[in-house]
Design a protein around this nucleic acid. Structure first.
Length: 429
RNA sequence: UCCACCAUAGCUCAAUCGGUAGAGCAUCCGGCUGUUAACCGGAGGGUUGUAGGUUCAAGUCCUACUGGUGGAGCCA
């Protein structure tokens, strides 16, 4: 029997198997706070209504004792959970052999991350992880609904993906260096030519020495690639995806969000269509707001916030200068200085959650651009080859799962959006 | 890689101008039949990150190092 189901068993004697995360005692009564992974409940042990032996066992329980407790479920308005259990029997699995390091008072970031394996048991982390679970479920659901095919892209790669940032490398038998994937995009482009509309969802790795609340060295990304999609089709699809995910999370996880004091009102406004703003317009807006920025500069974190605070929905900034974007992005036919791309900026200061573009489909242009970026043409042989066999315009994007979770849960830092965060100076636990 | 900040009890923090190291929580003992980070009384718990320097005297000032945190660049 799980705690989430107790409402259906009022008046019955049931057994809960879990952990005691807190205890309060008053000499002749113990209040045991229990957790079993599905919820929380308070179990009452009264000296006058149980055997002396059971009462003594309750007295001996320490924080995080693992227990199997039998009792009768009762509705009770005094309980924050609405239900309580009158204990009849306690079977101890283990009484902890060391003090539990995570106390009821505040802790620092360093200490909590060092104890991440235990920190996961805390209430806030419980609610965040269950919300993450619903977010990922909704993402997968949306792609299935839209008849996309899941294509799992490799994590070990030979050539370097975007060749932008730093990569992790490892020795790969007699073949020299292999690299941990920074993106599955190139592989999804190949798959889109076979299957039309494809997506992936998996870990990606960036060895950049970023130390901010928005960066991890290992993070989960959802990427999609659609044959015959223009940049406009791409943007329309992204706003549908994000609207769907937020809607489903509100349906299925609003209890978790409220438990961590997430105000639901801003999320309820997240419905397609989203506002769109060209890079040109964004620069003008930022200049009007006294940012020190000119046409051709990239839009940084503070600037992103400057733009997104103008709207109460995610905003899509499109068509950036070609020089500050990746080599594979399709130039705008009406203005070759910009490329057909877009970033989606989440509201409430959370910044970029999606990076997207239409990809170059012309083989000659692609080679030209690879050379322009001083990249080794040889390592892109199969990528270029795709353009020689029935090439078509196509578009796609990557969405950062942890950034999505951080925004939806309104977290201060992305490290709480993933069970075991990998940051530049931390790989343990 | 660069910039800024932090390091004192198991945890979170205090310690005035450089002058004998403190509190809450946790732990242990005792009390309490409705507690909600329970509460009340008592006890134990310290080479102030490491190494050097200035000084009659350093947790406090200076230098280096180590570890951590936030940010820039880069990105999801």
């Amino acid at each position: 029997m799980y705690i989430e189901d107790v409402a259906d068993h009022v008046g019955e004697k049931i057994e809960i198997r879990g952990w005691m995360f807190n205890k309060r005692s008053s000499g002749k009564i113990h209040f045991l706070q229990l957790r079993d992974g599905t919820g929380f409940i308070q179990a009452i042990v009264e000296k006058s209504s149980v055997d002396e032996e059971i009462f003594q066992i309750a007295a001996s329980l320490r924080i995080e004792s693992s227990v199997m407790i039998e009792g009768i479920i009762r509705e009770d308005k005094r309980s924050p959970y609405g239900y309580e259990m009158d204990v009849k029997n306690i079977e101890v699995v283990q009484i902890p052999i060391e003090d539990y390091p995570i106390s009821k008072k505040d802790h620092g970031v360093d200490f909590l991350m060092t104890n991440r394996h235990l920190w996961l048991r805390s209430k806030k982390q419980f609610h965040i992880l269950l919300t993450r679970n619903e977010i990922i479920r909704a993402v997968r659901e949306f792609y299935n609904l839209k008849k996309f095919v899941l294509v799992d892209t490799p994590i070990l790669t030979g050539s370097i993906g975007e060749c932008s940032g730093e990569v992790f490398d490892i020795e790969y038998f007699d073949l020299g260096k292999a690299y941990l994937a920074q993106t599955g995009q190139l592989y999804l482009e190949a798959a889109a030519m076979a299957l039309g509309k494809v997506f992936n969802l998996g870990p990606t790795f960036r060895a950049e020495k970023s130390k901010t609340r928005r960066h991890l060295t290992e993070f989960w990304m959802n990427e999609a690639e659609m044959a015959y999609y223009s940049s406009d089709d791409n943007m329309e699809f992204q706003e549908e995806l994000v609207s769907y995910v937020v809607k489903k999370v509100l349906e299925r996880a609003s209890d978790h969000l409220m438990a961590i004091d997430r105000d639901l009102k801003p999320l309820e406004k997240v419905k397609a269509p989203f506002p769109r703003m060209s890079y040109d317009e964004a620069i003008k807006l930022l200049q009007k707001k006294d940012f020190d920025i000119k046409w051709g500069d990239d839009i940084g974190g503070d600037e992103e916030t400057g733009i997104s605070e103008e709207f109460d929905k995610p905003v899509m900034v499109y068509n950036y200068p070609r020089n500050i974007k990746a080599f594979y992005m399709q130039p705008d036919p009406s203005n070759p200085e910009v490329v057909l791309c877009n970033d989606m900026l989440a509201p409430e200061g959370y910044g970029e959650i999606i990076g997207a573009s239409q990809r170059i489909h012309d083989p000659d242009l692609l080679v030209e651009r690879i050379k322009e970026f001083n990249l080794p043409v040889e390592s892109y042989d199969w990528y270029i080859d795709l353009r020689k066999h029935g090439t078509v315009p196509h578009s796609g994007f990557g969405m950062g799962i942890e950034r999505l979770v951080a925004w939806i849960c309104k977290l201060d830092h992305i490290r709480e959006a993933i069970p075991f965060a990998r940051t530049i100076y931390r790989i343990h636990p």
